[in-house]
Simulated assay, not measured.
Amino acid sequence: MYCLQWLLPVLLIPKPINADLFHYAFLILHLLSFFLEKKPCTICSIIFLTAVCLICYSCWDSCIFWSCRS
C-alpha cells in the first residue's frame, strides 16, 4: 500500500473556480505518467479508481475531472 500514498493527494488537489482544459489535461497527464512510471500495485489502483468514481458519481462538486452541476 506504499504506492497509494502517492495517489491520494491527487484527490485533495483543489479544483479552481475557472477550471479550464489545461487543468484537466494536467491532471490526466499527471495520472497517466504516474501509472506508467511508478506502476502501482493492482490493489492500490483499484482503490484509487473506486474512490475517484465514487467522488465523481456523488456529484459533490469535488470531482477532479469535471464539474457536476445538477
Rank of each mutant, 00 (worst) to 15 (best):
S70A: 08
K39H: 10
L29E: 11
L54P: 01
P9R: 00
C44K: 00
W66S: 12
F26M: 10
I46K: 07
C59T: 04
S45M: 07
D20P: 02
L4D: 04
Y2R: 08
M1F: 12
F48S: 02
I55F: 02
Q5F: 13
F34T: 06
C44N: 01
F22L: 13
F65V: 05
C59A: 07
E37A: 13
F65C: 00
P40N: 01
Y24D: 07
I17S: 11
I43C: 09
I55V: 14
N18L: 14
L7N: 04
K15V: 15
C68V: 04
L49C: 10
A19W: 04
F35E: 03
L32C: 10
I43D: 12
P40D: 01
S70G: 06
D20T: 14
C44R: 00
V52D: 04
S33W: 08
Y57K: 08
F48P: 02
R69A: 05
W60L: 12
L12E: 15
C59W: 08
L31G: 05
C53S: 12
C59P: 00
T42N: 10
V10Y: 14
S62A: 04
L54F: 09
C3L: 03
I28A: 13
S62R: 09
W66R: 12
R69V: 06
H23C: 06
R69W: 05
I43R: 10
F26S: 12
F34M: 07
C44L: 02
C41G: 15
H23N: 09
I13V: 15
P16N: 03
I28S: 11
I46S: 08
A51R: 06
H30T: 15
W60A: 07
L8H: 06
P14Y: 02
C68E: 08
L12M: 13
V52A: 13
S67G: 05
A25Y: 09
T50I: 05
C56G: 06
H30G: 08
V52G: 02
E37H: 10
P40K: 03
F22N: 14
E37N: 10
F48H: 03
Q5G: 04
A25C: 05
F26N: 11
F65H: 01
I64N: 12
L36S: 14
A51I: 07
H30F: 15
C3S: 15
L8G: 00
W6T: 05
